[in-house]
Amino acid sequence: MTEEYEDDEVVKKIMHIIRRAPHGTIYSYEALETVLIMAAYDQDVSMAFIDDGVYTLKKDQDTSELEIKGYMKTFTALDDYDVEKLYVDRQSLEERGLTEDDLIVEVEVLDSAAIGKLMGEQDTIIPN
């Protein structure tokens, strides 16, 4: 599962699983910080959004009146950090009355079996 690059740098497949809604708790925010660091270490980082985790990608979030720092813009910047593997669980999305058009970034919507298979291919899974 671990890819060896020419310069012998070890690249591990690390999947972050986001299952919490934003703002109510800090988990998804601090998860995003971890993702950015791991991407800076040139690891093969992916994210899977499941259950309430899909709410973190909702468009039009505005936390200004909460006086909590919003982090939605960071999602749109993930591409710049080469974090391009964003998987969304189709059932979680549908259960919440959302579609891909409601999301702030481009994602791959997959069924749970496909995401389960990807989980099996990881070196490490980081739950959030």
């Binding site: 690390i14 660091i37 791991m38 270490y41 690891q43 070196d123 490490t124």
Partner: peptide, 14 residues
């Protein structure tokens, strides 16, 4: 957080 990254790289299990 880089340390957590290093742990993920080095560990057989995290």
């Amino acid at each position: 957080l880089g340390q957590l990254t290093d742990m993920a790289i080095v560990a057989d299990r995290l």
